[in-house]
Write a protein that binds this DNA or RNA. Structure first.
Length: 171
DNA sequence: TTAGTGATATCC
DNA sequence: GATATCACTAAA
């Protein structure tokens, strides 16, 4: 059981996103330790990705996307749902991976609810923090890809990218 | 299919 | 200041 370090996140989101599938999210935010296997992720890649929050450039909200890999980006969607991402890639390049589902349930807002993640964790780090981190238990899974969800505002080119990664059979 | 909800960005 | 939009969910 080993905790993921900065090197894991410090590469292109299209490499990191499929590898995060099958890993274990561990949270102590609520006091007790909660462990959830990640079953689905999505990659958001740079200003040229019209589905990425940072595609219009740097704003106070998207600032964190440009920062260090391994940092957590949490934001409120539709006034009631917290969505959690991890920053990947080079500093200065806005990209990250959205955690879309965990074992036994699906839905990015359910994941944050289960783990107790809210806006308080925005800009925390999976690498250095003590409240939430990610572990590799050594298990490997087949990965299937699909189009991303809920990004109809993006251009067709990016709507059609297969940048969603879903856990399959154990290998 | 639709309501619910509030931060954010963008326009006065 | 006002408004439109939104990486969702539950209920019907």
């Amino acid at each position: 059981m080993k905790r993921l370090t900065e090197e894991f996140f410090h590469r292109d989101c299209l490499e990191a996103a499929p590898e995060l599938v099958g890993k274990i999210l561990v949270s102590k935010i609520g006091g007790e330790e909660i462990r959830v296997r990640i079953t689905e992720t999505e990659a958001y890649r740079g200003e040229e990705d019209t589905a990425c929050h940072a595609h219009k450039g740097r704003t106070p909200r998207t600032e964190v996307l440009y920062g260090k890999s391994g940092v957590i980006y949490v934001y409120l969607c539709y006034g009631m749902h917290w969505l959690m991402n991890v920053i990947t890639g080079e500093e200065g390049q806005p990209q990250g991976v959205l955690f879309r589902a965990g074992e036994g349930f699906g839905g990015p807002a359910k994941l944050t609810k289960r783990l107790g993640v809210t806006g308080r964790q925005n800009k925390d780090s999976f690498v250095t923090g003590n409240e939430i981190w990610i572990e590799d238990d050594g298990r490997r899974f087949e990965i299937t890809t699909d189009k991303r969800v809920g990004i109809n505002y993006a251009t067709e080119e990016y709507i059609n990218k297969q940048w969603r990664f879903i856990m399959g059979k154990s290998i």
